[in-house]
Nucleic acid binder design. Sequence first.
DNA 1: AGCTTTCTTCACACTTTCTTAACACCCTTA
DNA 2: TAAGGGTGTTAAGAAAGTGTGAAGAAAGCT
Lengths: 224, 224
Amino acid sequence: MSKALIIDDEQQMRRLLRMALESRGYEIYEAADGPLGLQEAAFHRPDVILLDLGLPSMSGIEVLKRLREWSDVPVLILSVRDQENVKVEALECGADDYVTKPFGTAELLARLTVIQRRRFTRQNPEIIVGKLRLDLLHHEASLNAEQVKLTPTEFALIKVLAEHAGRIVTQNQIIRQVWPGQQTDQSEGLRVHINHLRKKIGASGPQIINEPGIGYRLESEGES
Amino acid sequence: MSKALIIDDEQQMRRLLRMALESRGYEIYEAADGPLGLQEAAFHRPDVILLDLGLPSMSGIEVLKRLREWSDVPVLILSVRDQENVKVEALECGADDYVTKPFGTAELLARLTVIQRRRFTRQNPEIIVGKLRLDLLHHEASLNAEQVKLTPTEFALIKVLAEHAGRIVTQNQIIRQVWPGQQTDQSEGLRVHINHLRKKIGASGPQIINEPGIGYRLESEGES
DNA sequence: AGCTTTCTTCACACTTTCTTAACACCCTTA
DNA sequence: TAAGGGTGTTAAGAAAGTGTGAAGAAAGCT
């Protein structure tokens, strides 16, 4: 049985969520604010967290950041706002998905299933982008079935790019994932590691393309 | 059935509006001055408000400011010609659009539809305007499913316009959002970036329409 | 400790983007 | 017709961002 933690200050919303989730067999924990939510998360180790962005005392984003310092539990954001910026920020901070209030129960449950499965399939230990293959289990990379030796940082970096192959990943997203918990400006070093990766991958593998002022994109199979 | 509140001191104008809107199935409420208008708005909770700027006793701007302290209801401004400054002020105080007296019924109804159109809840942080699609998470723009390369400033600019698609955004609003924390006059550069965007979006996407003296409007789907 | 590997920092050349300026082109008004 | 405000367009210098090599610092290994 999956355990779900609901962090929302509105009791009405918590009750609604509880009923919807219990009918699916979830075991429910509740918290009415951010600090309590973190405490509950640490204690009960839920399999999924539903987090409201509009919390008192501590913003939902802040809760998410703190949580991500020690946990990879799937997080579904509950947002009332139509403000895209907040949603983007939440996703960049490691949220898995979000629903906008008001939402339908069916949709909510569907999204929960998706993000939990995504976490599960992430245990699938490899990512393949064209001729490049990343073995996440052994931290090994290979190009045309030939092994390429990558340092830990380089591997973390190419992993972020490969997970979003074909799409732009912003510098902030990269830095947050490769250097978690750092607040010093790491964009200097990022350039260097990109440089190293390009040399090691060379022309035969997927190219790392820079999008000036935004971030980088790993060319996926079939692009020119 | 949508409820509309008309705030105008001329009885003739109220009657004209009432007839035009009732033929579209609106339920109409009327108020002859500002204080009455606010009272009616609070009581009936209309879905849209038509507000005349030239009111006795309390200026339309004042009514709008008071209203915005507690309500996000869409407001369409009714103004006479040559009140450019007042129009700009109204838009920056939270009005959604305006029509200039005398106006055609068709135009009035079209604008009402636009400002009332509720942005359906999106589950991806993206904005879609006709054939143009903005992916806010990845900072990617696409036109007819084909990617368009935009610079950071261009992306920020089209984002502001797209968030208010079909409505007018004043130059000040644009500049404040695209160049936050700037106090130098950026309106020179704005024209240049608008120009670049028009070239990149071309004729196949939504047009960026200039409203002289006011600002810009991104043509939304269905407009000519 | 000594050695190797890896990471970070710095400097500088290079590319892309932004800003500024100049001028042409409306449209409106006198 | 001319004048003026606001806008569209283009080009060039300024600013910001990026690629690259190397050297010192930090971390890991024997």
